[in-house]
């Protein structure tokens, strides 16, 4: 089980969290202007690196707030100092 550092509650067990996938995926500013390819990319394509990955977590069984973390998907280590509210 991962030990996840919630920026508000401190380190807690993974079972307290809900995963939110890749971080920093912005909703398109003008969705109607996108081509089908661009819309497909926004909707269905996410980074899937073996290595550093910026991702979202929600502390559902704690403060219920979202935050971002950077984790290495090859080792599951969460980088200290990279957890941001």
């Amino acid at each position: 089980m991962l030990l996840i550092p919630c920026p508000w509650c401190g380190p807690r067990d993974e079972a307290e969290f809900h995963y939110g996938g890749q971080a920093h995926v912005a909703y398109p500013e003008n969705p109607a202007a996108l081509s089908d390819e661009e819309w497909a990319r926004y909707l269905f394509f996410r980074d899937n690196p073996k290595g550093r990955f910026a991702e979202r977590w929600n502390h559902t069984a704690g403060c219920r707030r979202w935050f971002n973390a950077v984790r290495n998907t090859a080792t599951n280590e969460i980088e200290a100092g990279e957890v941001t509210a």
Partner: peptide, 13 residues
């Protein structure tokens, strides 16, 4: 397991 990972192991819960 819910998160992305290339490690061939998961959590016991």
């Amino acid at each position: 397991d819910p998160y992305n990972s290339y490690r061939q192991r998961g959590a016991f819960h």
